[in-house]
């Protein structure tokens, strides 16, 4: 079966054409990026603002727990059979809108929770010192809280990316777009080499995305540590 999977992946014919893996791969990457951008634009400012005010913590932290309890599969099914339908949405493919909405919803929890916690976990002494220096709320947020919260915010984005990629794969179970179709087509038609080949590809890309995000995170964090030390020194 593993041999079949490898030869399926190495056969160029499986990659080309309107239903080829290249099209589905592009579709899924496009979905992932769009959903992540939408969720970040919608959720991150609110989370950071709540963190700055110190309000709504219960909601910001518990949204993660609720997100984990709701099966992504069930949400996809409800949205695609229900109000949003399975119409083709431009480059996003069949059930594009339902898929995008579920992806954005399920990437919100890590973004919101980490954004809020990141701001709240800034050392209160640093915040107090900044206020003592006469910083206004806006200065405090942009020059002290946000830079210090950045590592956790970036971690939240990385978790969201992994979550979105996984959920985008599941879209195939509701006849949606993406590489998951290779897996479902293989398994539901007893073409196990194809199904396994699709699974290998999806897993590999997930690991590459996670690895890339971890690299970005590492870039964001050490620079920030230096800033943190400088902030502490200049404010202490």
């Amino acid at each position: 079966m593993i041999g079949d999977a490898v030869s399926f992946l190495l056969n160029g014919a499986n990659w080309s054409g309107p239903d080829g893996m290249l099209v589905q791969l592009t579709q899924q990457l496009l979905l992932t990026v769009t959903a992540l951008v939408v969720a970040t634009a919608a959720g991150l400012p609110i989370a950071l603002w709540l963190g700055h005010l110190g309000k709504g913590g219960f909601l910001a932290v518990n949204i993660s727990n609720i997100g984990r309890a709701v099966p992504t599969f069930a949400a996809l099914v409800l949205l695609s059979v229900g109000p949003l339908g399975t119409d083709v949405l431009g480059p996003y493919g069949r059930a594009g809108l339902a898929t995008l909405v579920s992806l954005a919803i399920f990437s919100l929890p890590p973004i919101v929770t980490n954004g809020y916690v990141g701001i709240r976990e800034v050392d209160p002494e640093v915040v107090e010192a900044a206020r003592g220096m006469g910083m206004t709320g806006r200065d405090l947020f942009w020059r002290v809280e946000l830079p210090l919260a950045l590592p956790l915010v970036v971690t939240g984005l990385r978790l969201a990316l992994v979550q979105v990629w996984a959920t985008a794969t599941i879209a195939a179970l509701v006849a949606g777009p993406g590489l998951g179709n290779v897996i479902t087509a293989g398994f539901y038609r007893s073409n196990y080499g194809k199904g396994l080949g699709g699974a290998i590809l999806v897993a590999l890309i997930a690991l590459i995305l996670e690895g890339g995000a971890a690299l970005v995170e590492r870039y964001a964090v050490p620079r920030n540590r230096i800033e943190r030390r400088e902030a502490r020194m200049s404010l202490a």
Binding site: M1, A166, I170, I183, Y192, A199, V202, A203, A206
Partner: peptide, 15 residues
């Protein structure tokens, strides 16, 4: 392991 989507992990175990 957690990074691998569930729809891919189950097929990977099938062999």
């Amino acid at each position: 392991l957690y990074t691998i989507p569930s729809l891919a992990l189950f097929p990977l175990l099938v062999p």
